[in-house]
Design a protein around this nucleic acid. Structure first.
Length: 487
RNA sequence: CGGGGUGUAGCGCAGAUGGAAGCGCACCGCGUUUGGGACGCGGGGGUCGGCGGUUCAAGUCCGCCCACCCCGACCA
């Protein structure tokens, strides 16, 4: 292996692969080295390690709070679903059949009816809703579940697309179409609010095309984010299911006039894929940059000392500072036998927003040295008096959130272009997003994909108005759409 | 499923023509170090992917199988 290859792969080197030169390799190494996840023995499956799971727990809490505040409750539906359930909704079965894992043997006996491991739970929840819902007085039903699902993916990537992944799936049933649509859009807003205000990831809210929508949905809405390599990531989706599943599973209620009606249902989900988004939006050459509100550790303290006497003094100050910062998630790196310089690099790689260094010099000055992750190296360091540490940390976490959000938004703006013609479009799509008038025709979309590898990521809800001509076929177009290469 | 590639220590790899299984990193111990990725000395660790064959002798040669990776196809 050449020296170049070694550098490229980050082998025998304390340095990560280069983000700017080899984004995909940088991503893989970072997930493994930051101990977010590891490969499982089964191809395409991952083990989420404690640091990654802590991040997921914070994501979960931030979302769950929002779900509860809007009247949703949590429940748990089973992992195994009768195979026949998957076959009741025509588009659903066509969409999911190729990626189902099926259990055919149980207790050593061939099963009379095979069971599928849920790829999503519309069917089993539809079945239960049919049992539970009788009257308009039972509506709406607003249930969410935090669980795992399995889809037999052929090409996988840690967090971004794994065969098994963790997510939440909300499933609601309503009396009217308007109410269901309002719910779908409300949840889309919640995802966007979460992405921007918790994860510091700017997103575009939009509608999916017929080709890209969820199998069985009437309409799919999405939030799309631009990753550091300018590709697009579908970061969460919210579906208006119309009466498709209600008809397939007989989810019916008697209305005020004693007339039997089908419900209108929705479903919406956000998965561990979002962690991949956080990595790819904020990370830099030195590693992760975790958004302060979701970071497992918001502050890491690195003690510095040479001998026992210094250690005693320094550790006393460390404990005091840790106590002062009780309202934050603080970790003291007391690993022995590792020098401070190594720890600095290690925690920068792992994306902790704020690092506090406390050594003999700081103790003597009644101060601490504070470094912000979004400004790596010595540039982001400042000395802070011990009695000012709480307000400074509090403000800095907020500042870092704003700074990384702004950086991500500016990056997206700088790499989103409005093509003047199709040649221009083809150039843009190679490295960025194209925002263009589009006719909405499925055949037109397919041709664009074949010619450029780009797909329609969404038709943004926020439209400029007016009309133009389709960037590809030249026919009249009423809406603008985002086209990009995607994960 | 098509095309290509790789299986040797936890990870990354070397082992021409068959002849005592090695290197770097990681790990353990001791010592010196510690404010931006430390060093010395000592040590532990192997079904050489599996099965079969050729041979006095196989990591190395032959056959079959298995697994994984990359590129396509596919990916609500």
């Amino acid at each position: 292996m050449s020296d170049f290859d070694k550098r490229e792969k980050g082998i025998e080197s304390e340095h990560l692969a280069s983000r700017s030169e080899n984004f995909a390799e940088w991503y893989n190494q970072l997930v493994l080295r930051a101990e977010l996840a590891d490969y499982a023995p089964v191809r395409g499956c991952m083990v989420v390690r404690p640091y990654g799971w802590a991040l997921w727990e914070n994501i979960r809490n931030a979302l769950d709070r929002r779900f509860k505040a809007t009247g949703h409750v949590n429940a748990a539906f089973p992992l195994l679903i009768p195979k026949s359930f998957m076959e009741r909704e025509k588009e659903h079965v066509e969409g999911f059949s190729p990626e189902l894992a099926v259990v055919t043997i149980g207790g050593g006996e061939e099963l009379e009816e095979p069971l599928v491991i849920r790829p999503t739970s519309e069917t089993i929840i539809g079945h239960m809703y049919a049992k539970w819902i009788k009257s308009y007085r039972d509506l709406p039903v607003l249930i969410n579940q935090w669980n795992n699902v399995v889809r037999w993916e052929l090409r996988t990537k840690l967090f971004i697309r794994t065969m098994e992944f963790y997510w939440q799936e909300g499933h609601t049933a309503h009396a009217t179409e308007e109410e269901a649509e309002a719910e779908t859009l409300q949840m889309l807003d919640i995802y966007a609010d979460f992405a921007e205000n918790e994860a510091a990831i700017p997103v575009v809210k939009g509608r999916k095309t017929e080709k890209e929508k969820f199998a069985g949905a009437v309409r799919t809405y999405t939030i799309e984010g631009m990753m550091g390599d300018k590709r697009s990531l579908q970061s969460a989706t919210s579906h208006s299911l119309g009466q498709n599943f209600a008809r397939a599973f007989k989810i019916q209620y008697l209305d005020r006039n004693n007339i039997l009606q089908y419900c209108w249902t929705t479903s919406w989900g956000l998965s561990t894929r979002f962690i991949g988004g956080i990595i790819m939006v904020h990370g830099d050459e030195k590693g992760l940059i975790l958004p302060p509100k979701l970071a497992p550790y918001q502050v890491v303290i690195v003690p510095i000392f040479r001998d026992d006497a210094e250690q005693a003094k320094v550790m006393k100050a460390v404990e005091q500072i840790k106590d002062l910062l009780g309202e934050f998630r603080v970790h003291v790196d007391d690993r022995e036998g590792i020098r401070p310089g190594f720890k600095f690099n290690d925690w920068e790689m792992r994306g902790v927003p704020i690092r506090i260094e406390i050594g003999p010099r700081d103790v003597a000055n009644g101060a601490i040295t504070l470094a912000r992750r979004d400004q790596p190296g010595r540039d982001g360091k400042q000395s802070v008096p011990q009695n000012a540490v709480v307000p400074v940390v509090s403000k800095l976490l907020e500042d870092i959130h704003k700074a990384i959000y702004k950086k991500a938004l500016e990056f997206r703006k700088a790499n989103t272009h409005q093509p003047k013609d199709y040649d221009d479009f083809r150039q843009i799509i190679k490295s960025g997003w194209a925002d263009a008038w589009w006719c909405g025709d499925a055949e037109c979309e397919l041709q664009i994909k074949e010619e450029t590898k780009a797909t329609c990521r969404c038709i943004p809800l926020d439209q400029p108005g007016g009309e133009g001509v389709c960037i590809h076929c030249g026919r009249p177009a009423k809406e603008r759409a985002i086209f990009a290469r995607t994960y």
